[in-house]
Write a protein that binds this DNA or RNA. Structure first.
Lengths: 150, 150
DNA sequence: AAATCTACTTGCAAAAAACAAGTAAATTTC
DNA sequence: GAAATTTACTTGTTTTTTGCAAGTAGATTT
């Protein structure tokens, strides 16, 4: 598991605690998929293109659930499906993801179109507000398309 | 290693590319230590309290250096010391770290005093500007104290 | 009732991290 | 100026985590 810690009691600086929770290759990608691509089901996460293994995905979803970042609810129209949804705590990770997106687009070779990125950087507050609005009304339309080759 | 990739050619969305680089338990902590605690040397990183192993620290520093996030320069007054310093690309990770700090302080049990955090959240732009200023003039004074039990 | 689909779990090999010890180069101390 | 110390590592070894393939349980469609 994660780290020896006396039942529920956490300590350390806020950054360290955050990184213990989602400081890995996958957690934030899953959260991004829910936040800006409208992904909801296990299968959609798998097909998201980054190539996460099923056991890792299951593990991460469990961890995020336990941390109160996502919740699960059975799909009303198809009982086989389990829908994952961000909590309030989860949607508040949006600024981190947005900053990461902007940093990556600026400093690394990615498939992201410059014009779109420049626009997002300029209207940071609007993007965050719109992201939250879509989450509130359960708007499944992705706010961002897939970039690059994946 | 990181991931199979044809020499230098990177692909994928900006978030994914960013996470490939610093999506782990340690990289961002090292960067934070440089950014807000004024750490410069190998020894200082080790003593930073999170308990990173020497081989991991060495590996991460090498990776960050290769990515152009930090540079090394020998200490002028003590030739044994090697000073690590953030590059422009590195200091621009400040928004991510700040958002992570604020999120962690708000949602997880940490030792961070509420008053200080509320102040930082309100004056986000000022904090970022001040962080950059200190980097520019090489002000070694930490902008933040250590929180919690570490 | 059979076939299919979704969301997993299990087992195993490979990679990475944690831990302990050792080393080289520069520097301070005697 | 030789010995001891400090800094920044490297090199094993053990433990943990990840990646991959296969299999399974429950709901649904045919």
């Amino acid at each position: 598991m994660l780290k020896k810690s006396v039942a529920g009691r956490r300590s350390g600086c806020p950054v360290s605690v955050s990184l213990e929770l989602f400081g890995d290759r996958w957690s934030l990608l899953i959260i991004r998929d829910m936040m800006v691509r409208g992904n909801k089901t296990f299968k959609e996460f798998l097909a998201s293109g980054e190539g996460i293994a099923t056991n890792i995905l299951a593990g991460r979803l469990r961890r995020l659930e336990k941390a109160g970042i996502v919740i699960t609810e059975p799909d009303v129209s198809d009982g086989r499906k389990l829908n994952y949804r961000l909590t309030e705590k989860g949607i508040e990770l949006a600024p981190i993801l947005l900053d990461m997106l902007l940093w990556g687009a600026k400093h690394e070779e990615t498939g992201a179109p410059c014009a779109v990125m420049a626009e997002m950087a300029k209207s940071r507050e609007w993007v965050l507000k719109e992201t939250r609005r879509r989450w509130e009304v359960r708007d499944p339309a992705p706010i961002l398309p897939k970039f690059g080759s994946n």
